[in-house]
């Protein structure tokens, strides 16, 4: 019994320590955004890596998700003769939830892992120490530009994901399920409110920050050669994915709870 309590205590302390370290790391990264110098070149590189190079995977995910959503919601609504609600379900689901969450999860897998691996390798090969000896603060050079790029790039990706997700639903609804094209588009636009899109973009900014934060944090603190870098990469993706889902609930509660 005492062993069990001790194990729970150790795990709780470890969780508190991790949360504290992560918070300090994140705040330190943010504080470097406010103090010069700012490394625009590194910011541009990170923006390209997170945004532009993630475009294909986010686009494909969004379009297929929209298509599946139209098919599944049609199957369900047809039982109650409510097929007309398909357009509204697709557009609201994509803009409010599926766009930001799925884009976030895909980018976490692609970019979070790459960030952790790159910074982790720099850590275990002394490159981060070398930065310090060359009058360069590693938090300012490696972390701050990535945090900002994550918070900016993911909303841009989600705009694309929203458009393609709705388009996927439109393609299936009109070409396969026989909906009238003008009717489907009118329904889509009638039900869409600016807050639906804005809340999705706000979520995306938070998710982008989380992905960059976890990638940088795990990489920066990796130890012990290739194995340590591998473990940091896995931890970055797992932690970012879980945090995205947890924050999705919190933000949905904030935006839409009555």
């Amino acid at each position: 019994m005492l062993d069990l309590l001790a194990a729970v205590g150790r795990a709780s302390l470890a969780a508190c320590r991790f949360t504290g370290q992560l918070a300090i790391f994140g705040l330190s990264g943010l504080s470097h955004l406010l103090r010069p110098p700012f490394y625009w070149r590194m910011f541009g590189r990170a923006l390209l890596e997170i945004g532009y190079f993630s475009l294909p995977v986010v686009a494909l995910t969004a379009i297929f998700t929209g298509m599946v959503l139209a098919l599944q919601s049609y199957t369900g609504f047809a039982r109650f003769s409510a097929e007309g609600a398909v357009a509204s379900v697709v557009v609201l689901s994509v803009t409010r939830e599926l766009g930001p969450v799925l884009a976030g999860l895909m980018v976490a897998g692609r970019v979070g892992a790459a960030m952790a691996a790159e910074i982790g390798t720099m850590r275990v090969t002394d490159q981060i120490d070398a930065l310090s000896t060359l009058s360069t603060n590693p938090m300012k050079y490696l972390v701050a530009p990535r945090l900002l790029a994550g918070a900016i790039a993911l909303p841009l990706l989600v705009i694309v994901a929203d458009i393609l997700g709705v388009m996927g639903g439109y393609i299936i609804a009109t070409f396969k399920l026989g909906f009238n094209q003008a009717f489907y588009l009118k329904n889509t636009l009638d039900f869409l409110q600016p807050t639906d899109v804005i809340s999705g973009l706000a979520k995306a900014a938070v998710f982008g920050f989380i992905i960059a934060l976890m990638g940088c944090f795990q990489g920066y603190n990796s130890r012990g050669g290739a194995q340590g870098v591998g473990a940091a990469t896995t931890a970055a993706v797992v932690a970012a994915s879980i945090l995205i889902l947890a924050f999705d609930y919190v933000l949905t509660e904030m935006f839409f709870a009555r």
């Binding site: 090969t125 490159q127 120490d129 070398a130 930065l131 000896t133 009058s135």
Partner: peptide, 29 residues
């Protein structure tokens, strides 16, 4: 400490930068 030059055991060159930028990194920084 900025007046100290350091040669690391494994070189610790920045592999994302070309050689010239590695060499001039401190001057640019």
């Amino acid at each position: 400490r900025a007046r100290i030059g350091m040669l690391f055991q494994n070189g610790a060159l920045f592999d994302s930068l070309p050689v010239w930028e590695n060499v001039a990194f401190g001057l640019l920084a």
